[in-house]
Design a protein around this nucleic acid. Structure first.
Lengths: 237, 237
DNA sequence: GCAAAAGTGTTACCTGTACACCCATGG
DNA sequence: CCATGGGTGTACAGGTAACACTTTTGC
């Protein structure tokens, strides 16, 4: 699995890192996992989860390794966002960084890890506090994520296995930063025919209780043409 | 403009290259600019236009430099596709490569450069002949390009400043690999209200002559909600 | 009994889609 | 006069958007 001997004579070699935009969804809000940076410069500042790439791994593998090390989890969904390489982007030296976004289910995240790793969940609106070009990475990732979610390609990954339609709608409202009409949302989602209603209710968030749903096994195949395009509710009623 | 002193101690540094997917549009077909590779290994094989990144430039700058050097042109449109870094992707050594696609207007391309640089335009269907993971890069770029074109964000960039609706339709048919209904296409495009009809006709491709159009100056602002979603024509009439 | 969230249908409008014929011109 | 590509309109269908009230139950 080692790389072959290098036959190229080009003089300039670079440190290459990965930065992970780790997103979770909690009580109707999208959260971003950030860390207190351990190394100088900018030690102590708020940063995305990142690390340098090693000689014998692919970039995807590096992103997974970094994620695994600091969260103890494998991501439900990871995707490359882009590569950032302005010579001045990192005051510590020339580093080219490949950004990934990762969607995790916050229920599976061990809160004890927050302290051991100096990690905090922040809300997306605080991402301007991040060092270097990390806020730009987050913003680029959100554009990609919204596009993916519009095709229902993704998004379920931020929820537990069992979720209610109310939760799903809240997630889409958080993604698009606008309120949606409940009736239209449910009609659309149910018409996709990818959800199983369980005979079990979530009694935690309401007295009446909302049915839990799960994704149907082969749901990906059904999503060829689906698109999400609800408008915000006006002020209604 | 030099990068700051490097304070990081990580041992593994990498060659980083850019590869450009240079697309042009000619007589109803999308074309890809390829080169006979000059350096070993795989010298003489068909490759995308690429080159290593230098210490003092950003990745975008490197892509533009490489494009400029081999085509003498600046691209009308360039966008990062993704970064490819499997340890075994390049038999000549560990190289991480950032792919870009570039859209150029073939009328502006100097055919004399083809010979001086050992370049050839190939059709997209031949891209499997490319070395390493270049065919994958092309395929990923096409997905992005189609998505962009669906929002009419791009696509005009492959045409001359003055173009006919027939040309524009042919371009979209090439992008999506399917035939479109002429009436519906024109209705949709004209309804966007971003085209100026000139009092001048292209008499080259037909006896009757087709009106030339140009893009209206502030056309980008008008494209907020537009989406492209024609179905192929059946067999009709 | 009331507060709080869950759930449910109908209508109007708009947009996408299918479809066939006349026009202008150069040779 | 005819071959070639340019240009045009309409009717139907399907999907999006607006909109209000009933149900359940824990307290």
């Amino acid at each position: 699995m080692n790389a072959p001997q290098n036959t190229y004579k080009h003089p300039d070699k670079f440190l290459v890192s990965v930065d992970c935009i780790v997103l979770g969804f909690d009580t109707n809000e999208l959260k971003l996992l950030t860390f207190k940076r351990a190394i100088s410069p900018l030690a102590g500042c708020r940063s995305l989860l990142g690390g340098f790439i090693y000689e014998d791994e692919s970039i995807d593998q590096a992103a997974q390794r970094v994620l695994q090390k600091l969260t103890g989890m494998e991501s439900l969904y990871m995707e490359q966002v882009g590569t950032y390489g302005n010579p001045e982007r990192d005051p510590g030296g020339r580093v080219i960084s490949v950004a990934y976004y990762a969607l995790i289910n916050m229920e599976d995240y061990d809160p004890a890890l927050l302290e051991t790793h100096n990690a905090t969940w922040i809300s997306l609106s605080e991402s301007h506090l991040l060092i270097m070009d990390h806020a730009q990475m987050v913003s680029d990732a959100m554009v990609m994520l919204r596009r993916k979610a519009a095709a229902f390609d993704v998004g379920f990954n931020l929820l537990p296995d069992k979720f209610t339609l109310t939760q799903l709608q809240a997630l889409y409202e958080a993604l698009y930063c606008e309120e949606l009409d409940k009736r239209n949302f449910r009609k659309k989602v149910l018409s996709l025919d990818i959800l199983n209603r369980l005979n079990e209710k979530d009694k935690l968030h309401s007295r009446k209780g909302a049915y839990f749903y799960t994704l149907m096994p082969g749901y990906v195949d059904k999503l060829r043409r689906a698109t999400f395009s609800f408008r915000a509710v006006s002020e209604e009623e």
